[in-house]
């Protein structure tokens, strides 16, 4: 199965919702608008020739400078022909919501909770969207670029000695 076939099938079905196609990196990367992400995943999964039957991973990403700063990256895998594809979608900072794909893949359940926990991306239709790794009373989304890594309670570190 060639990349051109996948691109052709996707553009024929989704036309203007396919925003960007990149064939130059290690795997085919397709950026789609967030309204259709659920249909794109379902199409890739159900189409008989494409047959991407396995969701490898799902993660969030944050580009503070972009007009649509928050992103979700899906990696899918076709076990039969050993093809991989990367799907990206970008969301606004205000109300970053995207349709959950837990109805297609059970495994997306915790991955989406992790993306919510780290980036605050809201997945519509998720059965149990709450924090998974961090404490529930945490009031920010720690993986966003503006938040610091370090523990705020440390007093023994003098910034002068760390070049900060």
């Amino acid at each position: 199965m060639e990349n051109s076939l996948i691109i052709g099938k996707l553009t024929k079905r989704f036309r203007n919702d396919i925003l960007f196609v990149d064939d130059s990196s290690d795997m085919l990367t397709v950026t789609v608008s967030h309204e259709v992400i659920h249909e794109v995943i379902r199409f890739l999964m159900d189409d008989e020739t494409l047959n991407f039957n396995f969701l490898t991973t799902l993660c969030g990403i944050h580009y503070p400078e972009n007009p649509l700063p928050l992103g979700v990256v899906y990696h899918m895998h076709n076990f039969f022909q050993n093809r991989r594809i990367r799907i990206k979608t970008f969301l606004p900072l205000e109300n970053p919501s995207v349709k959950s794909i837990t109805d297609l893949f059970q495994t997306a359940n915790w991955m989406e909770r992790e993306a919510y926990d780290f980036y605050g991306i809201l997945f519509e239709g998720h059965p149990n969207l709450k924090r998974i790794l961090n404490m529930e009373n945490m009031d920010y989304f720690p993986m966003r670029k503006e938040y610091p890594l370090e523990d705020a309670t440390r007093k023994d570190k003098d910034d002068r000695f760390f070049g900060r």
Binding site: T56, T57, C59, I61, H62, V73, H75, Q106, T107, N109, W110, M111, E114
Partner: peptide
């Protein structure tokens, strides 16, 4: 499958590094 999704912007450290941790994914079953 232990996966590493690495996004580099050319800086000294990765822009984003996501680990596909197999345990995290199958423990939900």
């Amino acid at each position: 499958e232990l996966g590493f999704y690495l996004v580099s912007d050319g800086g000294r450290s990765p822009y984003r590094l996501h680990f596909r941790r197999p345990c995290f994914i199958y423990y939900q079953a």
